[in-house]
Simulated assay, not measured.
Amino acid sequence: MSKPKFQTEWEEIDEEYQQLQETHKIYRQKLEELTNLQSTCSSAISKQRKCLKDLRHSLTRGAKTCDEKDLELITDIRTQIKEKENFFFDMEAYLPKRNGLYLNLVLGNVNVTLLSNQAKFAYKDEYEKFKLYMTIILMFGAITCLFFLNCRVTDEIFNFLLVWYYCTLTIRESILMSNGSRIKGWWVSHHYVSTFLSGVMLTWLRSVPAVLLPERLLVPAASTGREESAGPHSGFTTQ
């Protein structure tokens, strides 16, 4: 007697489930091994950095009293120390590390390290696409503000988009830098300043732009002039 179809399907699903459990068990073991290896590498790098720092101080003291031959050796060792420190920077790009002050304030102490080159390149590509798309959107937003020059709503929406855009840029750039991207400091600083200025524009008082427009100054001035001329002498005739 043949098995019912649903029983056959259930047995296949149950067999795949058992395989899945075994695969997940292996995954958790590998993940634990990976975590231990990351901790070991991070500790070893910290120890190496400290030893190289102490050695650099010893070389500085020794360079003052050594002869020419030893001075050449010291110079060569210093060059190798610098190469090792650069190599440590590349190694740390694949290891979890504490976030900087800005990421700690925004995200907390969350691990943002991407473990593979493919993931790093994909995130960098998303960052570039985000900049391109938002630049196009903000360009159309600026044109819209030109057509609705005296509309407070469009100005606030545009300035809110600017604040959100630059805040998001600074966060993404901080994550990229944590993953080894050599983004220039002036580029990131420019976005911090832009975030601050956009926030100032967003929270600007409603009355301030009116002061900056000459045509709006003329109406109150003319009204004030008429009130003053009609003030103390109103109702009297000159002789």
Rank of each mutant, 00 (worst) to 15 (best):
E32F: 10
E33D: 15
E33M: 15
L34S: 15
L37G: 10
S39A: 09
C41A: 15
S43E: 14
K47P: 03
Q48S: 12
R49C: 11
R49F: 10
R49W: 06
D54Q: 12
R56I: 07
R56M: 13
R56F: 09
H57L: 14
S58V: 06
T60F: 10
K64E: 13
K69T: 06
D70Q: 10
L71H: 03
E72G: 06
I74L: 00
T75V: 08
D76S: 06
I77T: 01
R78Y: 01
T79F: 00
Q80H: 12
K82G: 11
K82D: 12
E85W: 00
E85D: 01
N86S: 05
D90P: 00
M91V: 08
Y94L: 02
K97G: 11
N104A: 11
L105V: 12
L105K: 13
L105R: 13
V106F: 07
V106G: 07
V106L: 04
V106P: 03
L107C: 11
G108C: 02
V110D: 01
V110Y: 04
L114Q: 01
L114G: 02
S116P: 06
A119C: 02
K120G: 02
A122N: 10
A122P: 02
Y123L: 11
D125H: 05
D125G: 02
D125K: 09
D125Y: 03
E128L: 09
Y133V: 08
M134S: 03
M134H: 04
T135Q: 04
G141F: 03
T144E: 06
T144D: 06
F147I: 12
F147Y: 12
